[in-house]
Design a protein around this nucleic acid. Sequence first.
DNA 1: AGACGTACCTGACCGC
DNA 2: TGCGGTCAGGTACGTC
Length: 273
Amino acid sequence: MPELPEVENVKLSLEGLGAPGQQFAKVQLLSPALRTPLKKDLSKRLPGQKILCVRRRAKFLLFETENFWIVNHLGMTGSWRPLDNGDELIKHDHVVFEFGSGMKLVFNDPRRFGLMEMVDKQSLERHAWLKNLGPEPLEADFTGEYLFRVTRRLKSPIKNVIMDQKKVVGVGNIYASEALFRAGIKPTRPAGRLRREEADRLVERIREVLFLAIASGGSTIRDYKNSRGESGQFQNLFVVYDRLGQPCVNCGTKIRSRFLGGRNTYWCAKCQR
DNA sequence: AGACGTACCTGACCGC
DNA sequence: TGCGGTCAGGTACGTC
């Protein structure tokens, strides 16, 4: 489900719900495991802790408390929602945060590809899920110079490379296709064959597409909603993704698709070289 | 090291 | 109505 823009919007909506400042009263673990087992320290050590802020690193949500970080990944289908008094739990609710104020937040994830763990405050950078992540695409260290340098010698298709979280974080299957179209680069191009100016352009188009998608509330294809239950709108601005056979917005050529890195990939054979 | 396939899991949808 | 096949916003792991 969620790439960087969707996770960013979940973060913003959790802030809007007032998650920062909430003090944990109880944490319920309703399922033994997400993608990895849910450890009991979540329910044992969080009560009494106050949420200081909610952050995003790559596609991870990070809840900062006085002594811990809660590290949470939405996988493909993870979502957060508030649970009002009288609301029933539903299928695939796995974790309930109960706060002293009476507010409750529920993590639901049908496919259980999501992740949740807590780590000591000073150990965040060393956590296995975070330690090998590449630069944030919207930060200053993700530059054309950087992308050019790390793609030299790579034979993998450029689309696979920009989805590799060790190279740059946050870009998933939708925004990879969308950014490559805007940059005029064919997704199958061996990454090592990018010219310097193309690396510059691709970095700018990745930034642009992510920025616009964040501002649009993310993309809702099937079931994505932020924690306030609001859908995104960026799907209305897709120019290639999921548009197989439809005319290119630039030249009218029919959009093509094929599997790349095990995922469906869309492009215009005339506009992208 | 890097490239590739496969596995993890549920649900929606499509054709028969 | 049901059944099998396919696909889905992600990541980790094994193998060559």
